[in-house]
Amino acid sequence: MVKSIKIVLQITILYILYQAGEWLSETFQLALPGSVIGMMLLILLLFTQVIRIEWIGDGAGFMVKYLPFFFIPSTLGIMQYYGIFQGRGFMLVIIVLVSTVLVMAVSGLIGHLSGGREGQP
């Protein structure tokens, strides 16, 4: 019980950082979304020890553990575009998949070959 209250409170801190990121993104017309700016803010605050890792650790750990869950509503948005999987639109799906494999292979190989001992399992 105490632990779940702690998690809720810590998620509230993350939410405030997200809103701060949204605000920064809008005010300065930044190309990055509020959530990503919020994440960079949190990193900065952790490094400068303004926020201590214990203050957000449990809540952040919880969010990260169930991260795919939070994507469900937005991925469901795909249901509004059934048409894309039919006819010529299907070509686009193939193109995106091929391009995704290329990116994964190129970035992955560069990382794999240049990482030295550090990046090994």
């Binding site: 993350l14 997200y18 990121g21 959530s35 994440m39 939070f70």
Partner: peptide
């Protein structure tokens, strides 16, 4: 909650 979930990646 997707917003704070992305913020949580800083952890």
């Amino acid at each position: 909650l997707l917003g704070p979930a992305v913020v949580a990646l800083a952890y």
